[in-house]
Each structure stands twice: as C-alpha cells, then as structure tokens.
Simulated scan of single mutants.
Amino acid sequence: MDRYHQGSLAIQERVGVRALAEHVGRSIGPGIRDVAAAFLALQPHLVVGAADGAGRLWASLLTGPPGFVRATGPDRIAVRGGLPDGDPLAGALAADGTRVGTIALDPRTRRRMRLNGTLAVTPGGFAVAAEEVFSNCPKYLQKRQPLELVAEGPGTVRRSAALTPDQGRAVRAADTFFIATTAEAGGTDASHRGGMPGFVEVLSPTELRWPDYPGNAMFLTLGNLALDERAGLLFPDWEGGGLLQLSGRARTEFGADGGRGVRFRVEAVVQSLHPGRLRWSAPEYSPANPALPASPAGPAGPALPGSPHRGSTTR
C-alpha cells in the first residue's frame, strides 16, 4: 500500500522526518476497528471536506444525535441526514462518487478520528466507502463540554468574497479550525488545526496566515497543498452554534529558521447559523498549545451571529 503521494513525500524529505513518517503511516488503512466504530457512534458532529460543483473546496459540519454516524461494516460508515439548505457542500453530499475527507473530533475527550473515501447516496443520508482510516494524538485540541442546541427558528446564510471586520475578529479569536485539502488521485482529506486565540492571523479581508505546529510527521495536509492549492476552512463558533466557512487557495511558507506557516487567500465566504447546532462550553486550552510570540487577539472579539457571548493537530 502506498501510504503517501509525492506531495507528502517531498515535505517529509524537506523536513527530515521520512523514516518517522513511514513508521507512523503504518497506522493508516481502510479498516474500521471496533474501538473506532464505538467512538463514531458517540459523536454528535462530523466534519466533511469535499469540492462543490464548481471545484471549490469546502469543509462543512454535520450535526445529529449520537448514532447518526456509525460503522456499518469493516470499511464503511453511514450518515443519517445531510447539510442544511445554503451550505456550500449540500449538493456534493447528495451526489454519488464524491471524494470526501471526514474527521470526527470529540472535544469532551480530546480524541479524533479521520476517515477518507468515496460517497454513495443512501435513503435518508449517505455512506462512505473507506480508503484511509486513522486516529490522531490529542495535541492542540481544546476541551469543551456540550451545553444545548441552538433554538428553533429560521436559518441564516450570508455570502461574500471577503471577510467582514466582524468575521475577521472572529477568526482572530478562534482557537480551532478545520481544513479540507485534496490531491486528485490521492483523494480528499479533512484535518484539524488548533492553538491559542490569535494563532490565525488576519492579514487582510482576503488573506490569512497560521503557523504549522509539529504534528505526527505525515504531512498529509501540506502534502496535498504541494500538489493542489485549493483548500476549505471551517471556523465553528462553539459557544454560539454558528459556522464560518472559507474557500480559497493556500501555500506553505518555509522560514530560514526551519519554521513553517501556511498563507491562505480567501475566494469565497459563507457564514451561517441554523437551528439544531450544538453549543459547547468555553474551552480548556490544550497544554500542547504553543505560546504566541506577540500579544494575541483575545477571545473577547465578536462571535458569529447567534452567539450570546465568547469566553487543535495533525499534519
């Protein structure tokens, strides 16, 4: 089994972790173990990354009662329900053959699991035939406890081509986001990024930058970006239930000191709040989060619509 494509291999070689990556990569396979199946059955969220009909990458969040995602075989999961109207991936998750990357992350336990594969539409939802399944360490995951569902009412969706000032402040205040990337034959992947509030810089309404913290040495995300710059970002408003989704292009920057960062150019923005989203408590920050070199933008910035107040990573 070829665990890595040429993009990931090139990054591993450049950083000098090829042997470690080969060792860690042995955990990647198509099989869903019993412990992974049990973990999935407890989750109220599933992040899904895919390309829309125009080829733009997005990351979206599905929500349901525990059991709405479950393993139905050794290499297959089933998902009940779908995305609300207005989500940029609603159409992609209703089309057979869509390549998807998924990540189930449990803020209660700092555990996460990734599963990538090909989608098939089913009555009342969809299934994913797994091609890659693996778990990740708890680095950079903030701990949270579930509170309540967003109250019933009409959903709201706002679209733009750049961040508004309030959206920019929400990004600066974020301690977590998800990123969807792809590499054509290598499929689509969804991953997590976490850190202290302020770890994502807003350079302008159309440009972001964040550091690439040490992870598990596989470099799946950066490897994908080396071959295909398309990316989709998802910033959840954990306390309010809203979502901020960005689609654009990203590239890795290597510093002379050996540090790495990713620069992202925004091409499309979708901000939404839908009833039924789960609200979570304020975070207990991961002890693995690096301190920021400058005064961070604190968590007091405006939240996404619907938030009553405001107070994670593999590669």
Rank of each mutant, 00 (worst) to 15 (best):
L234Q: 02
V128Y: 07
N116S: 15
F219C: 10
A217E: 04
S135V: 12
Q245W: 09
L61E: 02
L93I: 06
S204T: 09
F39H: 13
T182M: 08
A10I: 02
L93N: 03
D34R: 15
P65Q: 02
E284S: 09
F39K: 08
N289M: 03
P84L: 08
A78D: 15
P74A: 15
C137L: 12
E267P: 09
G125R: 02
R249F: 03
E148H: 14
A190N: 07
V47P: 02
G31K: 06
T221G: 04
A294L: 03
G25E: 00
P88N: 06
R56P: 01
E13K: 15
A170N: 14
E132Y: 10
A282G: 10
G117N: 06
G82I: 00
S135P: 07
T102L: 02
V128D: 05
A288H: 04
G240R: 11
E148P: 05
A161D: 12
F134N: 11
S286H: 06
A50K: 07
L105R: 12
D96K: 05
T252W: 00
F177Y: 14
A127N: 07
S281P: 12
Q245Y: 05
R26S: 04
F235G: 05
L278N: 10
H23Q: 14
D75T: 10
L233G: 00
G64W: 02
F199Y: 15
N216M: 09
R80M: 11
G168A: 15
A268V: 09
G261T: 01
P302K: 11
A190S: 13
D189K: 11
G53W: 03
D85G: 04
V47H: 03
V150D: 07
P138M: 06
V48M: 03
A300F: 05
G298K: 04
V17Q: 01
T221F: 10
D237R: 10
G241T: 05
L89N: 11
A294P: 00
A129S: 11
P299E: 03
R263E: 09
R76E: 14
P211K: 08
L46E: 02
L233C: 00
G240A: 12
S307P: 04
L141E: 03
A162Y: 05
G248L: 05
G117P: 05
V24W: 02
T313R: 07
H23T: 10
W210T: 06
G242Y: 09
G186Q: 13
P302M: 11
L57Q: 01
S27M: 14
T314D: 12
A288D: 14
L278V: 14
R76D: 08
E184T: 07
F199R: 02
S281M: 13
G276K: 13
L304S: 07
R209T: 06
L46S: 07
F178W: 06
G53H: 00
Q142C: 11
V266T: 10
V157S: 10
G259R: 12
A21P: 00
L141C: 11
S312V: 12
P205S: 04
T72A: 14
G55V: 02
L42V: 11
P146N: 14
L20Y: 01
Y4D: 03
A297L: 01
E284D: 12
A130C: 15
S135A: 14
E13H: 11
Q6S: 14
S27K: 15
M1G: 11
A303G: 15
A180C: 14
D87N: 13
